[in-house]
């Protein structure tokens, strides 16, 4: 049996639980993964690859995705969109040699043990490497997607970028969080 006071306390607690939600009712929610894929597409659009990257204008843009996860699935939607005038092909590398074809590379955080190993397989000077894991930049990645104040932002490892032949547009760098030597 609950005494009157104890019951009131329970009801008050429950009401607080419900009303706190209403204070917060806000516009529709986008899946974070969809947004991440959109960010990556936009980043690639604002990046210039060295002139020697494509032999012909018909060459495809290889967007490599390593590891499985919702972001990886979401990136499939970039198929046939255009980056630098080339059609995007989303590809999952299966063996070491496949990584040499990549123009952009996303690695799922579940594969964090493999960051260094995979980065050693690509042509580092001309691949835009992206993940959504703070460890990624430390292991040699270029871009990391971060959540900040309920918005999606991204960090760019400037030291690493300067070692590549990639050019990120000033617009991109203006909104990026620049990281020199990430810890």
């Amino acid at each position: 049996m609950l005494r009157g006071g104890a019951l009131r306390l329970r009801l008050a607690f429950f009401c607080l639980l419900i009303t706190a939600a209403e204070v917060n009712s806000a516009p529709a929610v986008h899946a974070l993964e969809t947004l991440k894929a959109a960010y990556m597409y936009n980043m690639a659009k604002f990046t210039r690859w060295p002139a020697s990257t494509w032999d012909s204008p018909d060459g495809v843009f290889q967007f490599c995705v390593y590891g499985s996860g919702r972001v990886a699935d979401e990136l499939q939607t970039l198929h046939n969109k255009k980056i630098a005038g080339h059609s995007v092909v989303v590809q999952k590398p299966l063996n070491e040699a496949d990584f040499r074809q990549c123009h952009a590379l996303y690695i799922d955080p579940s594969e964090h043990r493999r960051y260094r190993y995979i980065l050693s397989l690509i042509n580092r000077s001309a691949v835009l490497t992206i993940s959504d894991d703070t460890r990624f930049l430390r292991h040699g990645g270029l871009i990391n997607l971060v959540e900040k104040d309920q918005r999606l932002r991204f960090e760019v490892n400037m030291r690493r970028l300067s070692q590549t032949e990639l050019k990120l547009s000033s617009k991109l760098l203006k909104i990026a969080i620049l990281v020199d030597k990430p810890r």
Binding site: H30, L35, A38, N42, T77, L78, R151, L152
Partner: peptide
């Protein structure tokens, strides 16, 4: 979302 540009993307609230 991929068709939006950065200015718009950055306005989108995210959830965890």
């Amino acid at each position: 979302l991929a068709d939006l540009d950065f200015d718009e993307l950055m306005q989108i609230e995210i959830t965890s």
